[in-house]
Design a protein around this nucleic acid. Structure first.
Lengths: 223, 223, 223, 223
DNA sequence: CATGAATGAGCATTCATTCAT
DNA sequence: GATGAATGAATGCTCATTCAT
């Protein structure tokens, strides 16, 4: 849990407990006022221990952001891991995964915004470390898509790209809330619309499909 | 150009010129170290005039961010406005617009990241003002989609949502550069892949439609 | 008028006119926000000419305060000079003078407060120069008291001290407005009360005294 | 002691000690150059701790002025409280109080000037709070006068106004030092002269006096 | 004589971090 | 292990004043 964040304190359990408190408090404050406008004093003030003690469990303000980001990502990954549905059909699996991630995004709307905004304050290495958690989510989609392609249900698309698209099209819900308001304010409706579009976009064209396919049909849609 | 940012200096031309210098310097520094880690002293140091003079052209640090954001958005909007393609077919028009915006995103990759990250530091009203420039881009896509739906080329999707998707699927190029690297490093290839997916996703399925449906018809989707 | 404040501009009339404008504006602003919280830019902004021009008629911000103080004192002195009543009796003269100065103090209540507060920002020499105008007022009282003593109407008090007391007992009206509110809010009533007290305080207790009264008693209470 | 000025530091004793240092230094500097020309850096420089530490004991520059003013007033009030003489006769009591307050004024001559000058920089509420300490002094005089009136020793004057006059006539010593120099440079002589004048001003006129009273008593008011 | 523009020096305040106990 | 106190370094911003034109 405390990956890459060294401590002076030896009692691992204590460290975990205190850090958990710090993370909770910091997450709340970061969401309220952003990372830069939250002083480390603000955080300490809301903790049951004092500023100097706080520094026994984290080495710097950046550490706290890292911890917060990690926890957020872990929570998201955990939630997504549960989904890893074993639906028979790729279409159903894809739809289910999309729906599940949309729900997660909905739940963590402000947190995702926070991550997009403040991750830049992390050292590159750590930023990467945090981002890598995304691959749990991407992986879920990627696997489904890959299976769909194998089964000829999906067209010959890049599974990784589609997985990223799926991820990102869910993130839209958290990143452009305002712009989406006139369309729908119900994340489930949003989920259905988005997954339908993306799914349609990758479905194999029946009898004969595009991509290297030999279409006898005269009029190609994209010709 | 300097909408909503008042000055003490009277010579409008000079204001424009100095502000341009400030914006350039600030953009560079913001890109390098972010808004919060760039002090107004840093900006002034990189300007051919001093700190106090800088304050003759802007009223606050936030003003500078606003100016920077505005210019970025204006440049993007201007570049996109030129595109407003008069392609006959919606498919071509959509593809062209997507390609154009991808190119813009590619050019402004770091800037877009900057906007997503730092716009939160702006007062809500100003944030909205900046964001509203996005509607120029969204509008281009929306119009094309709407036309496509009228012509029965596109399915009955929400034009606005699709426009947002198009926009956001282009932004993916700037927001997840690292994750995209294994897929492609060529923004044009990226553009083609993405537009194909999204386009496919909104094309009208002729007689019979998707999802478990058995389409016999070979008739072109655009017919 | 422009005593001790040198200029670069030669046209004396112009200097007088411009300075008058400066003084008016500055007086208003000083009264509103105090000397230190009024920037020279604030003053220039409220003048029909610009900041650099302002510096052609005064040499520094302190000069302006000096000019303002001088004008205030001059106005007060002028108003008091008119009073210089030629009343026959010292008692009547004293009462009249007191009443007159109270009226002036009432009119210039905020200005007097301003002078007491901000004169400290003046160079000692200038502060003295301004204060010396007070001697016009003091002189009026002093002369009356001196005459009264000669005429054995007033006791053998120090005329200068009494004059200062008279002055200062009037200033009470401007300096402790709040504390005086429960006593009276009418400056004329205040004037009567104060002058009666002070007058009583300096009247000769002799066999025969002032004010129509015929006292037979020779015993002086303070003898 | 530190009424209305919150701290971060918990050790109350330390707060008191440090604040005392700050107040001493600040008082000295304010007396030398005034509140506005004294920077908080100046104060910190003369303290045995640094600028940031200073801010652990006060919240703002205004706080320091408030603290300084409070201490001054407290000292004055404490000195005056001791006086609260139980003299039998009102005349003696009045004279004693006047002498005592003159002594205090003499001791705090520059400080009183400071208060008259800089209290304007305080927020109204705080200004009132400081000024209210004056009522300790005023109260002493008022009580004496009231008692004197009851005993028919003093005329039917407004006790509050007379108390204010007494206060203010003592302040004359600090506010117009220069003007008083030709009269006397001895504050005790000043005190005697002033109290004699004011006392005379409020003494009941024996048998027949003004103010509608008909007193037959011949006993000297000072007996 | 007028003025637009410029600037050096300064201001009050805050912050992340570190010790001594 | 805990904590109260301390601090160096910065930060955003303002001001009185001066010049080149």
């Amino acid at each position: 849990m405390s990956r890459r964040v060294p401590t002076i304190v030896k009692n691992a359990e204590l460290v975990a407990q205190r850090r958990s408190e710090i993370i909770d408090v910091a997450t709340r404050l970061f969401l309220e006022r952003g990372f830069h406008k939250t002083s480390i004093r603000d955080i300490a003030r809301a903790c049951p221990f004092n500023l100097a003690s706080l520094y026994m469990y984290v080495g710097s303000k950046e550490d706290i952001l890292f911890l917060v980001a990690q926890q957020l990502m872990d929570e998201k990954a955990a939630a997504m891991a549960e989904v890893e549905t074993l639906h028979e059909g790729p279409v159903e699996a894809f739809t289910a995964a999309f729906r599940a991630y949309c729900q997660i995004v909905h739940k963590f709307r402000p947190h995702i915004r926070l991550l997009y905004q403040e991750l830049g304050a992390l050292a590159p290495e750590r930023r990467e470390s945090v981002m890598s958690s995304l691959y749990t989510v991407i992986g879920v989609f990627e696997k489904i898509v890959r299976r769909g392609i194998e089964k000829r249900v999906f067209a010959d698309v890049d599974p990784r790209l589609v997985a990223l698209d799926a991820l990102f099209m869910c993130h839209l819900w958290s990143m452009h809330t305002r712009a989406l308001r006139p369309i729908t304010t119900d994340y489930q409706a949003f989920s259905e619309m988005q997954s339908k579009i993306l799914l349609q976009g990758i479905l194999a064209r029946k009898p004969a499909t595009h991509r290297r396919s030999k279409k006898r049909k005269a009029k190609s849609p994209m010709a």
